[in-house]
Amino acid sequence: MNNFSQQQQKIRSAASRLLADGTVRFVIGWAPTRFAERTTVLFAHTEAEAQALVWNAHCTAALGKYLLDHRLADYAVGIVARGCESRMINRLLTDHQIWRERVYILGAPCPGMDAERCAGCRERAPVVWDELLWDADGMPETGGRQDAAPTNLDEATIADVGAGLALPAVGAACSRPLDTDTSLRSRFFRAEAVEGLSAAEKFSYWDEVYAKCIRCYACRQACPVCSCRACYVDMDRQGFQGKQHSAADNRVFGVTRAFHVADRCVECGECERVCPMGLPILGQTQKLIKEIEALTGEAYVQGMDAEEENFLGAFDLDDKDDFL
């Protein structure tokens, strides 16, 4: 934890400096709560507030989406950015939602946080920053929480670790059964757990999931890729989304949401983190990225740079079409 406290000091002093010299209007980071195991998001407007910023294994909320609240602003915003946040920022830039010169990025290489989804993370060092707060050297490149990460694991072994996972239990309201196991796992661990089922088993598994869905749209709200000014679910006259509260319509929403972020998902797992019903919906988006990689035969990681081409916005003359 020594590393965390040294790095926390670096975050605080960088934030104070940016606020003092007027580079940014405020800095987005994390603050403590009265629960030791929880942090919350802090918008530090003053140097004093900057001293309240924290950095520990419980900084599990991703910050990128908050930039959208200021997408029309004429001032600059500072943000602490780990791998996931930096990829969100690139994503928002690709989608023309924010202006690069109005974001000041404090790059914070991440050791892996105390969350199950972080255990499948492969890209923890920031890919874009204005200032890198500390070196990414010495950080484990993949896998779960720093102290939980076994060393010398190659990709094949990591895939094995993920493959044997049990089907995630569909959570009960207001419980958090998903964050119980933070050991190292495969990048698409949630999808892989479902893939082995038969069609009927899959159907009833998702039936159970979507029967519990309350359509609060928190998953959409937290998603840094859901950057639309207006969401299709809120547009009654478009008619894409049935308003019935039924498993069938919930399922249409779930699948559509996944498809809307299909080729742009940065794999941060916020959708699942914020689900108040604890539903394992990360599998849907993981599955899509896995499919894209299978179709193209190439690695597909979104947010690595701001100029990238989206899978669905391009084509190859010899794309696969084996079912057509």
């Binding site: 989608d95 023309h96 939602q97 950057s227 639309c228 000014r229 207006a230 547009m235 081409e309 989206n310 669905l312 916005g313 391009a314």
Partner: peptide, 13 residues
């Protein structure tokens, strides 16, 4: 225009 986010996904197509 009120709904358009300006993401440019359509422009590529």
């Amino acid at each position: 225009e009120a709904k358009c986010s300006g993401c440019g996904a359509c422009v590529d197509i």
